[in-house]
Design a protein around this nucleic acid. Structure first.
Lengths: 84, 84
DNA sequence: TAGTTATTTAGATAAATATCTAAATAATGA
DNA sequence: TCATTATTTAGATATTTATCTAAATAACTA
C-alpha cells in the first residue's frame, strides 16, 4: 500500500495514470504531454511501475506503458472499510 | 485531491485514520498509540485536518478528533473512473 | 557500420517532509 | 492565583523527492 499511495501522491503521476486510462502509450508520447524533461517522466513511470500501477513492454525502439487497474482493488477495499 | 493523497501518503497518518474509524479520540490518546512525540502527532493531525479527513473539537482541556469519511467519496470516484 | 532516435541511468540541487526539543497557550483544580 | 495537564507552535535537522543536464544503452535505418 505504501508504494501505491506514494505513486499517487503526485499530480503528474496521476495525470499519467489518467492518460493511460484512455490508451496505452510509449514513454515519448507520455513525455510530450508534459512540460517536464524526459528523464523526469521516466522517473515518474518508474515509480508507477514500482507500485504496479503500470506495466511496460519493450516494442522495438519504444517502451509501451499500460495501466494496471487490478492493483486498485486493494486501495478500493481499504477506503471502503473506512467507510464501513 | 492533492491534500487528500498527501494526507494518506504516510503510514502513521493511515494508522491514525484507522484508529479513528473505531472511535473518536483526543490528541493525547492518539499519541499514546505511537512511538512518536506528541508534537509530531499533532503535526500529522494537522495534515489530516487540512485534507478534511478528520475534524477536531475542543472539549475542555482536550481536543477530540473524529474521522470524516465523506471526503473519501471523491477518492472513491476517482479510482472508480480509472477502473471504468 | 555509422548516424539517428528512444529511453534510461547517473549525478547534482532545491524544495518538501517527518521528526525532534523547547517554548507558548489554554484549561483545570487546589 | 498558581501549579499541573493537554495541546500546539516555533525552530532546527536529516531524509526524501522532483527536477534538471549530461551520459549511457539500445534499436532502427541508410
Amino acid at each position: 500500500m505504501n508504494s501505491l499511495f506514494k505513486a499517487l501522491n503526485d499530480e503528474t503521476r496521476r495525470q499519467i495514470v489518467e492518460l493511460l486510462k484512455e490508451k496505452d502509450m510509449n514513454a515519448g508520447e507520455i513525455a510530450e504531454r508534459f512540460n517536464i524533461s524526459k528523464p523526469s517522466i521516466s522517473h515518474h513511470l518508474d515509480i508507477l511501475r514500482q507500485a504496479d500501477l503500470v506495466t511496460s513492454e519493450k516494442k522495438g525502439q519504444f517502451v509501451e506503458y499500460s495501466l494496471n487497474t487490478t492493483i486498485l482493488e486493494d486501495l478500493l477495499n481499504w477506503i471502503l472499510t473506512l467507510k464501513k
